[in-house]
């Protein structure tokens, strides 16, 4: 499974979005698509499980989880670092 596929799967399972994940573009605002702050916590924890990483405090901001592209950038930064 690719990084993008994994992110989308996490969003399906934990994002509680109001729209189908397949309809989301890379830069679609996930909070605008219905993801609550609490759901973003679940997404964060599920991403940590899926990619075997831990988000540092400096990445715990809304912009880290605001779109699939933003999540991919954060995950890539941590896994490549």
């Amino acid at each position: 499974m690719t990084v993008d596929e994994t992110i989308r799967q996490v969003l399906v399972e934990h994002g509680r979005l109001a729209v189908p994940v397949e309809s989301l573009a890379d830069d679609t605002d996930l909070f605008g698509a219905g993801m609550t702050s609490h759901a973003s916590v679940n997404v964060m924890l599920a991403l940590e499980d899926a990619f075997d990483l831990e988000f540092p405090e400096k990445m715990l901001k809304k912009s880290t989880f605001e779109s699939i592209g933003a999540i991919r950038s954060a995950v890539t930064e941590m896994t490549d670092g």
Binding site: H14, R16, T36, H38, A39, V41, N42, L45, A46
Partner: peptide, 21 residues
């Protein structure tokens, strides 16, 4: 906050969710 969302998070992530938040 929906109580069911919190219950689902506890069920899924256990103490890791609780101690992180």
């Amino acid at each position: 906050v929906h109580v069911g969302e919190v219950a689902a998070a506890v069920e899924c992530f256990g103490d890791r969710y609780v101690t992180r938040i």
